[in-house]
Design a protein around this nucleic acid. Structure first.
Length: 448
DNA sequence: TCTGGGGTCCTAGGACCC
DNA sequence: TCTGGGGTCCTAGGACCC
C-alpha cells in the first residue's frame, strides 16, 4: 500500500504561514523574473488563472479582484518542505521525497494491519503537519503509486470543488478502502488527463479513441496501448488495474545531469552580459554537482532569443564542451563555459534566456579527493571510469561553506576575461522592492 | 537494373512530471 | 514592456561495424 502526501498550493501556503492575512485572498507566486504564475491559491484558481500564465495577462486582477502576486522565495519553500517531509516520514517505514511538495509513503506488507486504520493514519498525519508547520496537505492511499496519486487528486478536488466527488473523500482518501462499485464511480468521474503519466498530448489522443476517464483507461487493453503508444502507458494501465510496476525510490539515484538556466527579465545584448549570467549559472551548477559528490565530463551552454517575440530575429544555439577530465571544480567549468559561449555568441540579437548543463556525471570517490589543492589528478584514460579531481576541492568546499553561511554570492570566482565582475544579471530585486511596499522587512538583502 | 542482416552506440526529439 | 526551471525516460534514426 502506498500513500501520496501533497502540500496544497504549496508555495502559496508557505507564504500564508508567515502572512496569515492572505488566508482568504486570491494569491499567486511568480517565477524568477516575476514572469508567470507558478503557484495559485484556490481563490486565484477560481479567478481562472492558469498554471504558468504570464503575469502581464493577469495583472489587472490586482485591482479588480484584489489578487496578490508574490515573488518566489525558494529558500523558504525548501525549508518548509524539509519540515513537512520529516513529519510525514514518521508515519511509514519508507518514504520517497518525490518533489518539493510531495512524498510517497510505503506501507509494505501492512495492508491488512492498516486497512481499517489507513484513513485514521492519514488524518493523524495531516493534522500533525498542519499543527507543526501550518501547511495544509491532502493524503491519498492506493495499492500502486499511480492509484495513490489518483486518490490524492480526488482528495484535493473533493475539497476544492464541492460536488465533484462525495464530500467524505476530501483531504484524506483511500481508493483501496472502497467497494468495487464505488471505486468504478470515482474513477469514472476522473478525467483521463488527470492520471499520472498521461499528459495533454496522450490525453487528447486517448479521448479521440473513446478513452475519456480514468475508469476507461483502467479497463483498456494494456498491450494494445503499448503497441500504439509506449511502454510507459502500458505501465500506467497496469498500475491503474492494481499491479504495481513503479517502485518506491527511497534512496534517490544520483542525478545524471545538472542544469542551471534562466530567462532574463530584460533582454541581454552584449557578450559581457551573457558571460555574467553564464558565470553565475556555472557556479551554481557546480555547487549542486559537489553536493552530490560527482564530477562532470562535459558542459553545455545555450543562449536563445524569445520565442514569444515573433517580430524579433530568432537565434538559439547550444554547444557542448568536453572537459579534459571530469571535474566538480568551478574554475575549469567556467573556462569551458566561457569558451563555449564565445563560440556560439552572435552580435545583434536580443537574448532572452541562457543556461548551462553539466553532463556525463561520474561519481567522485572520496579517496581521490584532492584535499591539498595540488593539481595531482590522475588523467582520465579512454575506456576507463577512473577519475580524479583536476582542481582544488579544498578551495571549492571552502567557497561553498562561505556561501552557505553568509548567503549566495558572498564569494564568487571570476570567469575568464571577466575579471571577477559579479553584478547581478537579474532584475528581480527592483521588482521585489515594488511588491513588498507594505513590509520592508520582507525584502531580501543582497550580500555584497 | 540488382545491393544482407544483425548488432551497438549516439543523438535528437518527444513525451511526461512538478 | 512583460511568457519558469528544473528533471526523467523512451524511441527513432543515423553511423558504423562485421
Amino acid at each position: 500500500m502506498f500513500a501520496l502526501v501533497d502540500g496544497n498550493n504549496f508555495y502559496v501556503s508557505c507564504e500564508r504561514v508567515f502572512r496569515p492575512e492572505l488566508a482568504t485572498r486570491p494569491v499567486i507566486v511568480l517565477s524568477n523574473n516575476d514572469g508567470c504564475a507558478i503557484a495559485r491559491s484556490n481563490e486565484a484558481k477560481a479567478l481562472g488563472i492558469k498554471m504558468g500564465q504570464p503575469w502581464f495577462e493577469c495583472r489587472d486582477m490586482e485591482r479588480q479582484h484584489g489578487l496578490i502576486a508574490l515573488s518566489a522565495n525558494f529558500a523558504l519553500y525548501g525549508d518548509m518542505s524539509d519540515r513537512m517531509m520529516s513529519i510525514a516520514g514518521q508515519y511509514a517505514p519508507r518514504q520517497e521525497v518525490y518533489s518539493i511538495d510531495e512524498s510517497f509513503l510505503s506501507f509494505d506488507g501492512m495492508d491488512r494491519l492498516y486497512h481499517g486504520g489507513l484513513l485514521a493514519t492519514g488524518r493523524a498525519l495531516r493534522t500533525k503537519v498542519l499543527q507543526w508547520t501550518g501547511l495544509p496537505t491532502c493524503v491519498g492511499f492506493g495499492p500502486t503509486k499511480t492509484l495513490a496519486k489518483l486518490a490524492n487528486h480526488i482528495a484535493k478536488t473533493a475539497e476544492r470543488k464541492p460536488g465533484s466527488y462525495p464530500v467524505e473523500y476530501a483531504q484524506v482518501f483511500c481508493l483501496a478502502c472502497l467497494d468495487p462499485m464505488q471505486r468504478a464511480t470515482a474513477l469514472a468521474a476522473t478525467d483521463v488527463g488527470e492520471v499520472w503519466g498521461v499528459g495533454s498530448r496522450i490525453g487528447a489522443k486517448l479521448k479521440a479513441r473513446g478513452i475519456k476517464t480514468a475508469h476507461d483507461l483502467a479497463r483498456a487493453d494494456a498491450k494494445a496501448l503499448r503497441r500504439e503508444f509506449s511502454v510507459q502507458l502500458e505501465r500506467t494501465v497496469l498500475e491503474l488495474q492494481g499491479t504495481s510496476c513503479i517502485n518506491l525510490e527511497d534512496v534517490p539515484p544520483p542525478k545524471q545531469q545538472i542544469a542551471c538556466t534562466r530567462s532574463f527579465g530584460k533582454p541581454a545584448l552584449s557578450l559581457t552580459e551573457l558571460l555574467e549570467a553564464i558565470t553565475e549559472f556555472t557556479a551554481r551548477a557546480a555547487e549542486k554537482l559537489r553536493r552530490q559528490t560527482s564530477g562532470a565530463s562535459s558542459i553545455t551552454v545555450f543562449i536563445r532569443t524569445s520565442p514569444f517575440r515573433k517580430d524579433d530575429r530568432q537565434y538559439s544555439r547550444a554547444v557542448t564542451v568536453p572537459l579534459v577530465c571530469p571535474t566538480s571544480s568551478t574554475q575549469p567549468l567556467l573556462q569551458a563555459a566561457g569558451a563555449g559561449l564565445r563560440s556560439i555568441y552572435l552580435e545583434g540579437y536580443k537574448y532572452a534566456g541562457a543556461g548551462v548543463m553539466l553532463n556525463d556525471l561520474v561519481l567522485e570517490s572520496t579517496e581521490q579527493l584532492d584535499l591539498f589543492g595540488a593539481e595531482s589528478a590522475t588523467p582520465m584514460h579512454p575506456g576507463t571510469q577512473t577519475k580524479g579531481s583536476c582542481h582544488s576541492t579544498h578551495l571549492m568546499s571552502a567557497i561553498d561553506h562561505l556561501n552557505t553561511r553568509y548567503g549566495r554570492g558572498t564569494v564568487v570566482l571570476g570567469s575568464a576575461g571577466l575579471g571577477g565582475a559579479s553584478r547581478s544579471w537579474s532584475m528581480k530585486r527592483e521588482r521585489l522592492t515594488r511588491q513588498y511596499t507594505t513590509d520592508w522587512t520582507q525584502i531580501p538583502v543582497a550580500v555584497a
